[in-house]
Design a protein around this nucleic acid. Structure first.
Lengths: 334, 334
DNA sequence: CTGTTAGCGCGTTCAT
DNA sequence: ATGAACGCGCTAACAG
């Protein structure tokens, strides 16, 4: 900055004010300064700014991805978060220390980030309690049981499963399975799992249908379990899958010689980008994962700009998408 | 720091030296300082460190993910990079301004990062030239034509395709298709695409086989093209797919009533985490995407620690993995 | 082995 | 509308 001050013949502080606009600077002076900035290819030093201003213009993301688990929606969230963050001229700090309440405040305490985004939020989440207690800015992709004063974006799994059940009912199916996600997390208080089951049971009840929940873990293990279920439950003609649970189901159906959708119908609750890759084409309730990520970042950054506003709380619904030209009505399985 | 200096009755600088170890501090003093740090829950202020030390202990990643493209391997790279970075006590800055040579040096110029990782590298890449010209630390996941002095990790696509061709040859296939990736990038100088084709042609030549390359774009568009190809080329009984190109192929085969692997054989060059999700189970050449990401980060951080060492250059090979219990020999398509 | 002190680059108050 | 000067939290050179 001292170089560009000299070159444009003004004081150091004038350069600062010209850049921040926090004090009026004559048009002519500003012009000279801009020119010097161009010529010297000046770039403000982020750490110096952060030291003085006590803000880093960065947000932290705790990203729960490991070598062995591939939860594609999680990755699409990240893509959306990264895009929104870049557009709003913030930096994005990605950390993998995801489920430790102490680790979660680290980027904040060390001045690396001004706020954080949490994913894979539990209904009762230590990390959320900690952040709230310390008065730290944060947003969730997902939500807890009690969300007072918490900014979040979430997908409406309950509604999605209900919609799926009704769709299958209309096709004539009377016995439906729900392949629910096995939370990688301890305990059974993972929001999407709990809310999906709630929607399932409510819809079954309303329509007087038979149904059964299967909790699916990693592909390899769940395959056998799903296969056994299909073998002993021939009256089940359709399933609703969450996230990647369509994989063990498709494999099992393939092994039993059952074709989709002719012999068995699936409604998959997944992101459209994932649906594009699955064979055979599945009917889906599409989860706008990229948009959820974008919104999660936008909500946090908005809160950073104006802390006094009430926190944004958004729940997005999924839309039904039929991807096959064949829509056979339900019938007994061969 | 001044608080912890007072509390432990020493000078400010002694605290600094106790933390950095750059000067001997008596065990007793060090102990008192550590205790004060615990009691006050002191966390060093990262921007202040960065300002003084001129290093941020952060690396930047340019992450080429958008709303509409889902290149899953790219996401797995990121997971590996994030894990290694966290383990080595660095921060990871993720940006989406991926293909602009000016944008690529921004995190370095502004002092936010000490080095950067590039993905989707072209054989002749402006960004690499720029970084090299400015003497910036960086590493590549992928590589250029000329890699003098450049640190990189890459997957051996040429070898993978050769291995795949030989495997198919051994099964009796005599006419093989290569579903190559359509580079999202301008021009035809995308390393994996070029090297895959090279391996394909070399292996075909060596074994006197027939073959054909199909360039696949996004799932929707490529599906028709693949379908037409299968219809007019009945002598082709097997294909090698790269990345997500197995998706349009599987859809087309499904529509033609051809079963895998009974009627048509596929060798997919993908990450194992992706292979776990594909139905039917495919024979694969597995790309260690997570490890590639880890290595890319480790190589960069190692370079940051000791700039004088020769740059690490690593090329990993894929391993053949048969995932189906059925191995039918090649036969004419029904 | 320990203490004193001068900046790192920037934002901002105070004086002009 | 502009300039001079101080300090953010930390590192390291200098002095003991």
């Amino acid at each position: 900055m001292v170089d560009i001050a000299k070159r444009s013949g003004v004081a150091l502080s004038t350069v600062s004010y010209a850049l921040s606009g926090k004090r009026p600077v004559s048009a002519e002076t500003r012009e000279r300064i801009q020119q010097a900035i161009q010529e010297l290819d000046y770039q403000p030093h982020a750490p110096a700014r952060a030291l003085k201003s006590r803000t880093s213009r960065a947000i932290g993301l705790f990203f729960p991805a490991t070598r062995d688990t591939l939860e594609i929606e999680t990755h699409i969230f990240l893509a959306g978060i990264a895009e929104a963050t870049s557009e709003l001229d913030y930096s994005l700090l990605v950390s993998t220390a995801t489920h430790d309440p102490a680790g979660i405040v680290r980027p904040l305490e060390t001045g690396r980030a001004d706020g954080v985004i949490l994913m894979e939020v539990r209904l009762a989440d230590d990390r959320v309690e900690r952040l709230r207690a310390e008065g730290r800015p944060f947003s969730l992709i997902g939500r807890c049981s009690n969300n007072e004063g918490v900014a979040y974006v979430d997908f409406d799994f309950e509604d999605a499963v209900k919609t799926a059940v009704h769709h299958l009912y209309d096709l004539g199916h009377r016995h439906i399975a729900l392949l629910n996600r096995a939370p990688l997390l301890a305990g059974a208080d993972y929001g999407p799992t709990v809310r999906s089951l709630a929607g399932f049971e409510a819809a079954l009840d309303e329509l007087s249908l038979h149904g059964q929940q299967l909790v699916c873990g990693a592909s390899g293990e769940s395959y056998i379990e799903v296969l056994r279920f299909l073998e002993r439950t021939p009256e089940c003609t359709a399933a609703i899958t969450l996230s990647v649970t369509h994989a063990p189901l498709l494999t099992a159906l393939n092994d039993l010689g059952l074709r989709v959708p002719e012999d068995f119908t699936i409604v998959a609750i997944i992101a459209s980008q994932v649906a594009d890759l699955v064979t055979p084409p599945l009917t889906t309730i599409e989860m706008p994962a990229f948009e959820l990520g974008r919104l999660g970042a936008e909500i946090l950054i908005r809160k950073l700009a104006a802390d006094d506003l009430p926190p944004s709380q958004v729940v997005l619904r999924g839309t039904l998408q039929v991807r096959s030209s064949r829509h056979p009505p339900a019938r007994r399985r061969p």
